Computed example of a mutant assay.
Amino acid sequence: MTTELSLRPLPPFRYDVVGSYLRPESLKQARADFASGKIDQQGLTQLEDKAIADLVQQQKEAGLQVITDGEFRRSWWHLDFMWELNGVEKVAIEKGYEFNGEVTRAESARLTGKITGENHAFVDHFVFLQQFAEVGITPRQTIPAPAQFLKELQRPDNQSATTAFYPNEEDLIADIAAAYQQVFRELYDRGCRNIQLDDCTWGMMVDPTYSSNGLQADAHQCTCGKHVTPIRNEAIDLMAEQCLAVNNAALLDLPKDLIMTTHVCRGNYHSTWASSGGYEPIADVLFARENVSAYYLEFDTERSGDFSPLAHVSNDKFVVLGLVSSKVGELEEAADVIQRIQEATKYVPLERLCLSTQCGFASTEEGNILTEAQQWAKIAFVKDVAKEVWG
């Protein structure tokens, strides 16, 4: 399967990445030394700077059109961003996030006051990355979606604090959106032109066993007989509309040359996963109505269902097919990936498709269970397949 289509000059790129990379051992040691008081914040920052500069060089040598800081300054893909918002504190909770066979560290983000977004540390993080931009290389900032923050504040551990400051849910959504817009504006003013919103809320809604604030989806066996899919019900509809509302409110009136995309995940911790289910229950909300330019979608296993929900993707949007697993080191078969891309063209034309891994390689500092050599082999594989498909 080869075409005459050229590589894209703007995100999403034909061969793309979700953004996080395995932390080098030197960085892990630096963070441990900082936690134990052996080095101070300045010393940690210097070591982070070096690790990120080395990572950027590796990304460029890999032929990527996008660079990220690998999320090297973070412990979590989402909580570190939330902790830096005004009115939010880092807290220990009774139990961490549940994954298939593992439970994470027990940390969360809880309100201490009204939410605002000025002077966010991630802006300075981007400024450091921006110095490595060059023609044909786009620096990308990854951020947890507003909906992800909303659901964190609505966890049972945090709900009472949230209600204390926001008895009216509409006011909560408005302030979350305004805080995010503040961060977006500051990033834009410092040269950022591509922001990726990472969002597990949709991946949880499609799981028939997921339960949060009374949400419990009914389920049925899909036609392939290998997984179950939730049946739409009022609880899913309400949660989907709420998540759409807060995301779209944050996306209002942004500069036209700021490319906003989203990545939908079912959990990515230490090579494990948190949820399963196809996109159909939320496709007509997420794919048709969320105001982003592209969707980075998990499709590396049968747990994500088939491609038919992509029929809901509006005609002005791209889909980045996450057909290559970041959870395992073994390479996929190129012919199988190409065949699946062909299957996806039944619902979205090839010129609006791209290819990536299904998630990052280290959504938390623990990282997935593969080597750095395997990580870069995966990226090379994505690039090679994309070159064969799109020319």
Rank of each mutant, 00 (worst) to 15 (best):
Q154W: 10
R105G: 11
L244K: 09
P167E: 12
D16V: 00
T371H: 08
E48K: 11
I341Y: 05
C224Q: 03
D218C: 11
Y279K: 10
N100H: 12
A386I: 05
Q182V: 08
E102L: 14
A377V: 02
T2V: 14
V18E: 00
S276P: 00
P24W: 03
V246A: 03
I259Q: 09
P11G: 03
T262E: 10
K50T: 15
T142L: 08
N213I: 09
Q374N: 04
I369L: 14
Q375D: 08
A235Y: 05
G37W: 06
L85I: 01
L258E: 01
A35G: 10
A179Y: 04
S6L: 11
G277E: 00
N213P: 09
Q375S: 11
P230F: 01
A178W: 04
C354Y: 03
Y296E: 04
A373K: 14
A294S: 15
S160R: 14
K327M: 07
Y21W: 11
D124L: 09
N100Y: 13
A164E: 15
L310F: 05
Q58Y: 06
N194D: 14
G214P: 02
H227F: 15
Y210F: 15
R185I: 07
I282P: 03
E94S: 15
P167Y: 10
W77F: 13
H125V: 13
A53H: 11
E298I: 06
I379L: 12
T45H: 11
T112R: 13
A249T: 00
V206A: 07
F184G: 01
T209M: 10
Q130K: 14
A164C: 09
L5K: 07
D54Y: 06
L150I: 00
T116K: 09
L22G: 06
Q46H: 13
A250D: 00
K226H: 09
C224N: 13
T345V: 03
S314L: 02
